[in-house]
C-alpha cells in the first residue's frame, strides 16, 4: 500500500543526508511499527511518507514514495494529504489554532476537503465516540491536558479516512488506558483496510498490535520482520532501542546461569510467564 524505493534525503544546507537508501513495502490493512533511536530520522521518514518532505521542508529527495501504486512525488501536496494522514509528534503543534472548540478542530481538515456539513458532523461524532472525546467536544482545544490534546490530534487525522495513516509517537502524552485505547482503535481501522505506520517506543504494545516491525538506524532500515524476532534481536541495544523488561530479565537470568537451554528470549508478558513458570516461577 505504501512503498519506498531507495529513498535518500538531505535537509537544505545539510552536510550529509538524514536517510540513505531506505526501502520498505507495507501492505494494505497492516500495522507497521518503526523503531529507532532519537536522531535516527524517524520524524523525517514520517514526513516523507506523508509528502511534507520535500513539499514543505525542501531539501534533496531521491528515490520514490508511492501509495497504492501512485507516486507521491507526482502529486500536489493537497492531493497527497488526502492519501496519507500524518499525526505529528507534538500534539501542541498539530492543533490548528484556527478553531475555538474541539468539535470544530476535528472537523477542520474535512472542511478543507470540502465535505458537506451533515456528513462532516456525522464523521466527527463517530470518531469522537471511538476515542472517547464526546465530553470534550464543546471545550476549547487549549484548555485540554496534553493527553487530551493528543487524542484530538489523532481524531483530526482519523476522521479524514485517508488510506494510510502515519503516526509519529502518537501516544507520548497518554496514560496507559489512553494508549491502549489508541492501539485498539488502530486495530479496528486496520480491519477497515486502513494501513497504519506508527513510530513508537512502547515495545510491549507494538508487540501486541503490529504485524511487522522495522528498525531505522545508521540512516537506513537495518532490520525488518516479525515483531517477536525483532524485539529479541540482540542488536537492539547497539541501535539504542532497548528491549522489554521481560527480555532484559531473561537475559540477566541467563547470565546468572538460570533458564538453561532457553531457545527463544521472551519479549511479551505471556512469553515471559511461560519461560519463568518453568524456572523460578510458580510451581
Amino acid at each position: 500500500m505504501i512503498r519506498l524505493d531507495g529513498v535518500s534525503y538531505a535537509y537544505p544546507d545539510a552536510v550529509r543526508p538524514v536517510l540513505e537508501n531506505v526501502s520498505l513495502d507495507i501492505g494494505r490493512g497492516a500495522i507497521a511499527g518503526i523503531l529507532g533511536a532519537s536522531g535516527a530520522g524517524k520524524t523525517t521518514l514520517a514526513k516523507i511518507m506523508a509528502g511534507f518532505i520535500p513539499a514543505v521542508d525542501g531539501g534533496e529527495l531521491s528515490g520514490t514514495v508511492s501509495v497504492d501504486g501512485q507516486g507521491m512525488g507526482d502529486l500536489p501536496l493537497a492531493e497527497a494529504v488526502s492519501r496519507v494522514g500524518l499525526v505529528i509528534q507534538n500534539p501542541f503543534n498539530q492543533i490548528s489554532g484556527a478553531r475555538y472548540t474541539v468539535r470544530e478542530e476535528i472537523a477542520f481538515g474535512l472542511e478543507n476537503f470540502g465535505v458537506a456539513r451533515p456528513e462532516m458532523q456525522g464523521r466527527v461524532d463517530e470518531v469522537a465516540e471511538l476515542l472517547n472525546l464526546g465530553p470534550l467536544l464543546d471545550r476549547s482545544p487549549y484548555e485540554l491536558s496534553g493527553g487530551q490534546q493528543q487524542l484530538v490530534a489523532i481524531a483530526s487525522m482519523i476522521v479524514l479516512r485517508t488510506p494510510v495513516l502515519v503516526m509519529d509517537e502518537p501516544t507520548s502524552q497518554l496514560d496507559p488506558a489512553g494508549t491502549r485505547m489508541v492501539f485498539d482503535v488502530l486495530s479496528t481501522l486496520r480491519g477497515t483496510g486502513i494501513t497504519v505506520v506508527i513510530f513508537e517506543h512502547k515495545l510491549e504494545l507494538l508487540h501486541q498490535h503490529a504485524d511487522a516491525l522495522y528498525v531505522l538506524a545508521d540512516r537506513s532500515i537495518v532490520a525488518a520482520g516479525d515483531p517477536t524476532d525483532i524485539l529479541a534481536d540482540a542488536r537492539l541495544a547497539e541501535w539504542h532501542i532497548g528491549s522489554t523488561r521481560y527480555t532484559r530479565a531473561a537475559r540477566a537470568a541467563q547470565d546468572r546461569g538460570l533458564l538453561a537451554g532457553l531457545q527463544h528470549l521472551p519479549v511479551s508478558l505471556e512469553q515471559a510467564v511461560a519461560v519463568f513458570a518453568d524456572d523460578g516461577g510458580a510451581r
Partner: peptide, 12 residues
C-alpha cells in the same frame, strides 16, 4: 513533568 516522553532507551 513527563521527562521521559519522546526519549529513546539511551535518553531514558
Amino acid at each position: 513533568d513527563e521527562p521521559t516522553t519522546g526519549q529513546d532507551a539511551a535518553g531514558i
